[in-house]
């Protein structure tokens, strides 16, 4: 019961968060320099055309009227019409979202697959050559910009060795795994570097903890100590970090999707910003906010399950 209550509380807390996100994004978009009517009509349009478009978009109405309209429409599931795509914002986002979610889940899975075992190896070999090599390689990954790693992978693995396609996203599930491998690795390299460092530190800390030493003294087999005591406890802080890095990962898709020509919401966001497509920017930001909030919620729930102390508090 306590778990259900906790979940409900967390869900209710999300409402003010979304409201705040809506206010901030509404104001931020309107603070951007550049008139959306000019962006739509193009440089060649006359001043009369611009005025007509502003009127049609409702941009001449007072700010609070525009916000009220945005809020009430959004609550009814209407995110407006995209100026750039000439279609309902919701349809545009729904068409593109699965690709980005696929990319994000793929990248996170790869991050865990890369970071988990390596952090373990580094931690139990602390200070030895294995530890040094792993940390040095990840340091390089962490210090290089995402787009540069992407271009390097494209140039060598796709264009020269032809092991992977340069762009696109495939049709079937397996095809998608193959097409999105390079973009996912690009995003995963950065995330896994952070995860690896954190997990390594956490494992080292737990290895030194008294209850682990006690377990050793009791004569428990090392595999049981690592599995039951070390890993579970070291994961708590890493799960939090994993949740936080989803936000980072979402911003990573903006760049990755552009470099790898993946038609997801990250690339759509860039296009929307350049075109000053207010409804689409608002809709996308809200979508990102919902996604990130859901991930945080899941992180909390998972952490709650891992760490009984949180349930008591």
């Amino acid at each position: 019961m306590a778990g259900v209550q906790y979940t409900l509380n967390r869900l209710v807390l999300m409402i003010p968060t979304f409201l705040l996100v809506m206010i901030i994004i509404f104001l931020l978009v309107r603070m951007l320099p550049g008139d959306p009517a000019v962006a739509i009509a193009g440089d060649k349009a006359s001043d009369a055309d611009i005025a007509a478009i502003r009127d049609k978009l409702g941009l001449n109405a007072p700010l609070w009227t525009q916000f009220w309209l945005f809020l009430t429409n959004t609550l009814q599931g209407d995110l407006g019409r995209s100026i750039l795509m000439r279609a309902p914002v919701l349809d545009v986002i729904i068409a593109r979202l699965p690709t980005t979610i696929f990319l994000a889940v793929y990248a996170i899975s790869l991050s865990i697959l890369i970071a988990g075992p390596l952090a373990f190896i580094a931690a139990i070999n602390r200070g030895r050559w294995q530890d040094n090599v792993i940390r040095a390689v990840f340091q390089v990954g962490l210090s290089m910009p995402v787009f540069y790693i992407g271009l390097l992978l494209l140039t060598f693995l796709a264009a020269q060795l032809r092991l992977f396609p340069v762009g696109g996203f495939g049709e079937t599930f397996l095809d998608r795994l193959y097409h999105l491998f390079l973009p996912s690795v690009t995003v995963a390299l950065y995330t896994s570097a952070i995860l690896m460092r954190n997990l390594r530190a956490a494992i080292i800390e737990v290895l030194d903890a008294e209850y682990v030493q006690f377990a050793r003294a009791k004569g428990l087999p090392p595999r049981l100590i690592l599995g039951r005591h070390v890993l579970k406890n070291a994961l708590i802080s890493t799960i939090t970090l994993l949740g936080l890095s989803i936000g980072q990962l979402m911003s990573g898709t903006l760049v990755t999707e552009t470099v790898f020509a993946v038609p997801g919401v990250g690339r759509l966001m860039l296009e929307a910003i350049f075109a000053r497509d207010y409804p689409l920017i608002q809709g996308l930001t809200l979508t990102f906010a919902v996604l990130v909030s859901l991930v945080f919620l899941m992180t909390d729930l998972f952490q709650n399950w891992l760490d009984p102390r949180m349930r008591l508090s």
Partner: peptide, 8 residues
């Protein structure tokens, strides 16, 4: 500036 701002 970006394109839209330059246009304005």
């Amino acid at each position: 500036v970006d394109g839209a701002t330059r246009g304005s």
